[in-house]
Design a protein around this nucleic acid. Structure first.
Lengths: 238, 238
DNA sequence: TTACACGTTTGACTTACATCAAAACTCAAA
DNA sequence: TTTGAGTTTTGATGTAAGTCAAACGTGTAA
């Protein structure tokens, strides 16, 4: 985990609309630049933070791809999320002043460090930022609710369909193709996230492929029939 | 859902330490009383709020017991939590200005209505309250993480053991017995929360009972051997 | 180029839990 | 005190996904 001293401003960042509230004038925006202390690089495979680390900051992902996970004493891992550019990690640390999950870079990444003290100070000054922080946290709660629905009620095919649709939708919002992409995570990591074994993930990919819904080759995925995926995920809306 | 005009102060509330930050002097505490606008009664079986309702307030439970749930178009329900006195519901509504889940009273209840505008206004004035709100939201994120672990990695017995231990721990923190209690929810609701069918919940109860770990009679539960439960939930810590 | 490690796919078999069904219990209204 | 609706328990059977195992691909380093 390398630290750079380059000070970069949110005001010029092309991800601004993803991680920052909108509708500020020039001078307010400059004040808001103060949330970000530094920017750091995280090498593929290394931890941005780990279970037990003292909590100091939230991290806005600038480039790269992360997974967050928790694990039991006996070594079982549960992936709790995959995060990409413009998304925030670290919210789990606020409640106990230390992190309860691990954030691991799935590819070389760069993150903006936002010391939480700065976030809170500026939140008191700027109601728009305050509201933004609250929404961020609420969004995470709602996201986890929908994963609970996946794990509690859905079958393997429904889970994977929902996963692919969600992934492609987020990538599309970042200017990438809405039909093809490279998975940044292994079958095992997808399985952990979706509460199934890697073999089941692989079989379900193969099934979708045989049915002409997607094209898969290792980590390359191309969605040929998005409506079929939507239908699998939620039969009533199609 | 009946509205009472009785204005009740947090400063005199015996649940203060559960829903409010501590360490205020007299005058600050009086100011904080302003977060709560009114107190309302919710009849057993009726909704405090439902999916789609506009979001205006958070609710602190004063008495009674709630479940929160989300449902799919095709009618599948996922219980996302059970809440008791001193706990807060409604955080899901912040992100989209409307609620995404339902909060239903499992017994006659009384809740303190905290208009979110008040919460935000006072948060800017009192850093301690601000911090408290952030911790509340972070706690909910961490709680959901641990449910993900249950649903993604644990077997039926582990899930039910974890559920019982969590329930009894929270009841104990509120001054109730740490060994016996009455379940407020049905087998089906427990099953929905834990991602299993009601029959499996019932069978697992029976199994624990046969093994002398608990005594169950319908909704009455008495924990005879808490260590055995802990061992089932997490073999390595015992 | 070969060799090796690691991830992925596929097949054969097992199992934990779901499903279907019926009986037993609880409680409230007639 | 019956009746009936809703909930819980228990049994018999089915199945989606897990487990075990082997083959196949891909990338990397000698």
């Amino acid at each position: 985990m390398l630290t750079e001293t380059i000070k970069v401003a949110c005001s010029n960042c092309n991800l601004r609309e993803l991680c920052m509230p909108m509708g500020f004038d020039q001078t307010e925006m400059q004040k808001l630049d103060e949330v970000v202390a530094t920017r750091i690089k995280v090498k593929q495979g290394s931890n941005l933070f780990s279970h037990g680390d003292p909590f100091t900051s939230l991290y806005a992902i600038r480039t790269g791809f992360f997974k967050t996970s928790i694990s039991t004493e006996d070594g079982r891992e549960q992936v709790t999320g995959f995060q990409m550019a413009g998304e925030i990690v670290g919210l789990d640390g606020i409640v106990n002043d230390h992190h309860t999950c691990n954030a691991i870079a799935l590819e070389d990444a760069e993150v903006c460090v936002m010391p939480f003290a700065n976030v809170e100070d500026l939140s008191r000054e700027f109601p728009v930022l305050q509201r933004h922080v609250h929404k961020m946290m609420s969004r995470e709660i709602v996201r986890e609710n929908s994963i609970l629905m996946l794990l509690g009620n859905m079958r393997a095919e429904e889970r994977l369909a929902a996963f692919l649709l969600n992934l492609v939708q987020r990538l599309h919002a970042r200017g990438f193709s809405q039909s093809e992409f490279i998975l940044r995570m292994s079958r095992e990591e997808i399985g952990s996230y979706l509460g199934m074994k890697l073999e089941t993930v692989s079989r379900t990919f193969s099934k979708f492929s045989e049915e002409g819904i997607i094209e898969v080759k290792q980590r390359y995925v191309r969605i040929l029939n998005p409506d079929a995926l939507k239908k699998i995920f939620n039969p009533s809306t199609c």
